[in-house]
Every structure is written in structure tokens, then in C-alpha cells.
Write a protein that binds this DNA or RNA. Sequence first.
DNA 1: CCAAAAGTGTTCTCAATACACCCATGT
DNA 2: ACATGGGTGTATTGAGAACACTTTTGG
Lengths: 249, 249
Amino acid sequence: MLAETTLNQTTPELIPNAVLAVDVVLFTIVRKAPLSEALQVLLVHQGDQSGHGRWILPGVLVRSSETFAEAARRALAEKAGLDAATWYLDQLATYGEPARDSRGRVASIAHLALVRSDDLTLRPGIDVGATEWCPVKRVEERVLAFDHAEMIRAGVQRIRSKVRYSWVAFQLLNEKFTIPELRAVYAAILDPGLARLSSGNFKKAMRPLFESGVLQVVGRATTGRRGRPGDLYRFAGPVTGTRERELPW
Amino acid sequence: MLAETTLNQTTPELIPNAVLAVDVVLFTIVRKAPLSEALQVLLVHQGDQSGHGRWILPGVLVRSSETFAEAARRALAEKAGLDAATWYLDQLATYGEPARDSRGRVASIAHLALVRSDDLTLRPGIDVGATEWCPVKRVEERVLAFDHAEMIRAGVQRIRSKVRYSWVAFQLLNEKFTIPELRAVYAAILDPGLARLSSGNFKKAMRPLFESGVLQVVGRATTGRRGRPGDLYRFAGPVTGTRERELPW
DNA sequence: CCAAAAGTGTTCTCAATACACCCATGT
DNA sequence: ACATGGGTGTATTGAGAACACTTTTGG
């Protein structure tokens, strides 16, 4: 068994022994929802004639000439009618317990995706009964197939970590946004209690952004609510940038 | 939550479309080496009759009934004669560009492993020409096959991140160790200049460990070098624990 | 005794928080 | 007018870094 088929130039072909799949944990911030439920994840309901459908993450099998990222974006397109071509997308982890799927050895490469705003139209794809945004706090109530609940946990952990040392938060905002909206994103992801932090202190935490000029004022928000409307900003920096010092929250 | 069994009778089998492999980025700290080269990674040389061997990470194909972690430990056993049964092991990322391997679609799940001390005997396995510890600083000089150089970069990034908010550093030390040895691990992974930090400040950074009692004094080191020998400590806590506050280094 | 390394305590600095105050809008 | 929320500045606290000092070993 030591003479197993390993890397060997004389072997022109390797025999496939597994099925590759991708699943996508797509997060968004729903502004209308209360802060504690603003962070939501996209779930699709597997259509089933017997009525015994189940909730799963959008996912597809990887095609032979396709990268994982391409497959992940295709999953969002085919399962929910979303054009994720330009969205933030990152590999999370790969799940492939031997007994994970009775139909064969399946390895699913979970991905994390983020989308701005919530005025998207979900269009259930083929073999999909329904699509919905589910507050992360309430995922426990849903019965998710496979290890998709675990994937969501990993996704939450990842975005909580990323938001503290990188600028991914702007992936969840529109082109123009106010500082309170930005604070809401951080509060929804990290801690609802963060909203109680004074506005001045929050802006101080974002100081490196202002100093480097990647946050530019582009006007004043038109308000519908009470109180003074906030200044509108635009994020002009690369999302791949990271802070030198992690946020303390 | 696993063990999917009876839900999709219409498709009893999925046709395998890829080959699953694991590769292991195994780090250790070599005490004899200078600090800047103390962090080393295990490389194996693919034996080749033509003499055109190349350096790669230890890896194997995943067996059908095997978890990724099991396959990763087996890779260390088969390629380098190492018994990694109890070693720290963590999934890094999965690499599977369509054109990654000309012999077919291969997805390799890279893993990060850590091993205490360097008094291990490497025993080159079958179809392995040689095994060696390579200082991470000098990996650039080696020509690594596939995307293994990228895997090592990801491994370095991961361990640098982990060491700042978790207790993985103790995985690289023996059962008993001194504070200066612990500082050497941090310096080797994060920044050699860290060794210039005063001992008091380093111990202050480790204060949460002392206060929670997971670092216990077990004696005094027997010295061979100059100067006062350090106190010997034992780490009694779970490696999975994390600090509430990340290290500033 | 001296140099080197380990360990302890104190001071200084700076960043994160708390808080007080001003501005703009809707009711 | 005033309540509500956005924005700015100042004071206070606490953690990290610098440094002085003691302890223990080898030469």
C-alpha cells in the first residue's frame, strides 16, 4: 500500500476518486431589520415533490474547466438568479467527511460572499423551491442539510475576524454611505452593543481611513428620519487593504 | 448533522470528477538555527531517475474512507516517517486550479501542522528521495512544484495570525520550557526583532496565561550557557483556547 | 569580580474610552 | 421650541513600551 498511486510523471492520467462541489455562504446587511438580525445569510429551499424539502446553501458541482471561484459565482446565479461577478468572494474551508454524502465521496469547498444592500431580486433557479434571507441569529431554527450549518458558523467567524482588520465592511454598503450606516454594519456583524459607542469614538477608530484619504466626503445625506443627516462618504481604497492595527472590538 | 442517507433516491451515485489530495505544511522551530531561520518547513524531494527531482510538500491522495486530517497525518508518516498522530493539525485552504496538474483535475487540501522540538528522525518514504527542514526565509531559493510555494506562504500567514490570538506556540515547545524559549518561538514566527523586547514586557504580555493558572512553574532550568537560568514552566491549558485580546506585535 | 542572561518593578507614552458640547433636521 | 440624531472636541483611563534595578550563573 506504500506503492500507492502518487505523483509520478510516468502516469499520464489520474483516476478521479471524488466529486468536487462548492457551497456559498452569502451574507448581506438588511437595513430594515433590527440590528441584532441585520446580518443575514442566503438560504435556498430544495424543491421536493413530497414536500419534505430542506434548507441548504446555494451550491453546485464544479465543472472540469472551472475554478472554484467561478463555480461559486455560478451557484449564486443558477440557484438564486444573482449576478455575483464583481462581488467579494473568498474561500472558507473544505468539507469532505467520508460519510458526508451517501451518493459518493463529495468534497465541498465552502465560500464566503458579501453583497451590498438588500434591494436584490431573488429568483429561485431550477430545482430550487425558494430562496430567502435568514437572520444569522435564527439559523439555528432552520434544519440545514449536510454540514451547511457548520459552514455558516465558519462564515460568521470569518467575517467577524475580517471586519476587524480589513475593509470588507464596505462590501456591504452602497457606493455612498454615512458613518452611522458604516457603524451599523460593524454593530450587526460584531456586537449590537457597539451602536451605543459614541459617534466620535467610532470615527476615531476609522481615522486611518480618513488620513490615507480613502474615505472621501461626497455630500450630505437626504434624510427622512429625525435628527441631523449624516455626511455621505465614498470608499476609494482597495478592499484588499488591511489595517496595521486590529480593532479592539 | 452529517450522515446523509435517504434523501435523493433518484440519484444514487455521483460520478467522480476530480482527484482529492492533501499536502502538509509542517513547521517546526529549530533551536540551533539563528532566530531569523529558526522557523523551518518540511520539504521532500521527489526521487527521479533522470535526476530532475523537485522539492514538494509531503502529500498523498485521499482514500475513500479517510478524512482529510487522517490523510494529512498519513502523508507525514509515508513521506517522512513521522508519527503525527497527536500533532497540531489544521486545514489551510484548498488549491485546485483547473490546469494545476496536467494529469487531471486535482484538488489539494493544504494543511498546517506543527511539531515540538527538532530531535525527530526524518526517514524518507517510498518514492521520496530526501526529506529536509528548510528555513522559511530560504524557501524562495527552492523551486517548488505545483502551487506548493503558495501553500507555504499561506501557512506562514496562518501561523503568524494564530500565534497572536491563540496558544499554538506551545505546540512548538517541549513539555517543559523557559520564558526565553517561549519568546524565541514568538520571535522566530513574528519578528526576530522581538527578541530585543525586554523580558519583563514579554512576561506582561503573557499575563493572562499566568493569571488563569495555565502556566505553571515546574522548576529551574539547568543551564549550560552563561547567565541566570530561566524558570521552567509547563503549559496546562487547552491549545484551542484563545486570548481575548490579540497581541500587538 | 565581571559579564551575561533572567526576572522584577517603575515610569512614560499613547491610544481607547467616556463625556461634554455644538450642529442640523423633523415634528 | 424642542427632541432626536450627527459631528467635534477634551479629559480620563489603561495597556504597551522603555528603562532602571536585582538575581543568578559562567568565566
